[in-house]
Design a protein around this nucleic acid. Structure first.
Lengths: 340, 340
DNA sequence: CGGCAAATTGTTAGCGTTCACAATTCTCGG
DNA sequence: CCGAGAATTGTGAACGCTAACAATTTGCCG
């Protein structure tokens, strides 16, 4: 008489006794090991199906030390870039037989990140990817001593691995484009500078201007949001100011476009605007936004490849640098007079 | 002489022997159990710190049967709605002591969803939330017999729990607003109809028109993307057609605005447009978009509350139905002549 | 200061798997 | 049809933790 008080999930042993074999044999079938006769294999398969047996991941983990799971430290996922990267990571991870355990951060303070990372480690993740290239995240990741690989997407740091598109050269492409159109007073609307991406784009803009021996236009400060772009647009010195603005992401560019329109500045006739990311909506902004396309999905894939050591990802990462997508928000500069 | 060949993580026993107590006492300290003297508690704490001990979640799971993890079935996360919901879920789950294991789907076929769900179950999730209210997901979730709670966000179905804002009444709000402005020919640009949200908004639009005893305007079909909105905008019958369009999400509305502008239709003077979601960028569209705001973050929180049985969430869900945000894309209808 | 209850600490078994190895069953040449 | 070797199957221990219970120490009253 068996105990039926607790209807717990069937185990290897349950399957074994139903199939009339040992638990080890069942294990072999489940794990597709060789040296099992076709007859027993069938018997076991039938028993598995009948009981709806599912291997217990905890027991496996305990026995093997492997979890096949990867931890994700994410910041604001409700944005196109980060969430696209996550999708790319997920795709690649799944293909490689890994799972994702995701922890999002309410803020970017060191204690918060520290705690989140600690949680991930307790759950036995075999690697950590920080989708938030916030400087604090880099700091924490560089400090914590774990035996597992950790990397950040986009951020650059000497202690932790780093997958990033070449944002400096992308920023340079943007500036080159504007210079080729005859612009000489080129401003920058930056993202929050405690984000590595924002820093890099700012630096790229700076050094590109230097390469062209142009004076630095003013730098405005946003927070990635359309609202902040709008506010920057209202603050801009329109008379005698820049004739072109390189914006650190598309959402801010959208807000900027709105503000410029309200102030009677025509884009691109009076001022050229160039964004960054190429979100799917950018083509439908008014006017269509010239921007730098990032292949976020590929970026995610590269993370996984790097993390599980598939190939030297750095070269591959370079292969998919952001590329300029010219649409209707950039045009040749007019003369030397005030834009509008 | 202890074995030092494999530098594995310290276990309860390691901590115990360092602190000079039994492993059970360490367990008690770790789990904040009473009946441990302050002196030993301190000793054990010190040992834990010294060894950087982390409790092994697998062993815990095996011993207790609890994983404290919740599985997420997600579709396209690179969109504002779903990813915001995920953020809300994460926040609430974390507060309640749960973790998130996320699986995204490459497509919405039944086998794909089936496999993804199976993976989640193998990992011992104690509940499943499907952020994709795609009809196939509902189907699978309703079929699979598991002992754990499962629910979908936004979808409605009789077998699985369902958290949803009241989309029908929201659609009615949109129609009411347009009718109040004098519109009588109101079209709908629908989302893909194998999405529950799209269905509901369409139905809401339909029944609201009926309530006002208005004839149904034409229904156009999109796929949530700005591109599809743009294409719908080019296909619309502009002369003698609708004077207002209720669009099933903001991205499509953006594309629609673009197409209308290109065709010389002024919004809102000639045609009114109303969106759904209120993505953060909607305010900065040209013109600013009148839309129905969804509190995605709250929706995520409600999911967790429902799942872990915190309170009767249905009432709370009703509390945060989408509300109309009037901006500049809607205006009084002109006479009975063709809009533009 | 004996002794009983309460507080604290220790012991053992078991969760479901895999690993290392032992045992058994086949296969086939001589 | 014996026996060596290969193929197949089985056994016991271990992974790190918690639950249940046993043992020990402490506190306190008569």
């Amino acid at each position: 008489m068996t105990d039926v008080t607790t209807p717990r999930n069937p185990s290897l042993t349950d399957v074994a006794s139903l199939a009339g074999v040992s638990h080890q044999t069942v294990s072999r079938v489940v794990n597709r090991r060789p040296n099992v006769s076709e007859a027993t294999r069938r018997k076991v398969r039938a028993a598995i199906l009948e009981l709806d047996y599912r291997p217990n991941a905890a027991a496996r983990w305990l026995a093997t030390g492997r979890t096949h799971s990867i931890g994700i430290l994410a910041g604001e996922l409700a944005q196109y870039g980060p969430s696209s990267v996550l999708m790319g990571i997920q795709d690649a991870a799944r293909r490689a037989g890994y799972f994702l355990t995701v922890v999002t951060l309410k803020d970017y303070s060191v204690p918060t990140i520290d705690e989140a990372l600690s949680d991930l480690l307790n759950h036995g993740v075999e690697g950590v990817i920080a989708i938030t290239p916030h400087v604090s995240a880099l700091e924490v990741l560089a400090t914590v001593q774990t035996g597992i690989p950790m990397l950040t997407v986009g951020g650059g740091h000497h202690r932790v691995g780093d997958i990033a598109l070449d944002q400096e050269s992308a920023a340079a492409d943007a500036v080159d484009h504007l210079v080729a159109l005859g612009h000489e007073r080129i401003a920058h609307l930056a993202g929050p500078l405690d984000w590595v991406d924002a820093q890099r784009r700012l630096e790229g803009w700076r050094s590109a201007l230097k390469d062209h021996q142009l004076a630095e236009g003013p730098v405005y400060q946003g927070d990635w949001s359309a609202r902040s772009g709008y506010e920057a647009g209202r603050a801009i010195d329109v008379s005698g100011g820049p004739t072109a603005i390189f914006v650190s992401n598309d959402q801010m560019a959208l807000g900027l476009l709105k503000a410029l329109k309200e102030r009677g500045c025509r884009v691109p006739a009076d001022i050229s605007v160039i964004g960054f990311d190429d979100v799917p909506e950018a083509e439908y902004y008014e006017p269509s936004l010239t921007t730098l396309r990032q292949e976020f999905h590929d970026l995610g894939r590269l993370c996984i490849e790097e993390l599980i050591g598939l190939e030297p990802a750095s070269s591959a990462a370079d292969a998919s640098s952001p590329r300029l997508v010219v649409r209707s928000s950039t045009a040749p500069a007019r003369g030397r007079d005030a834009p509008c």
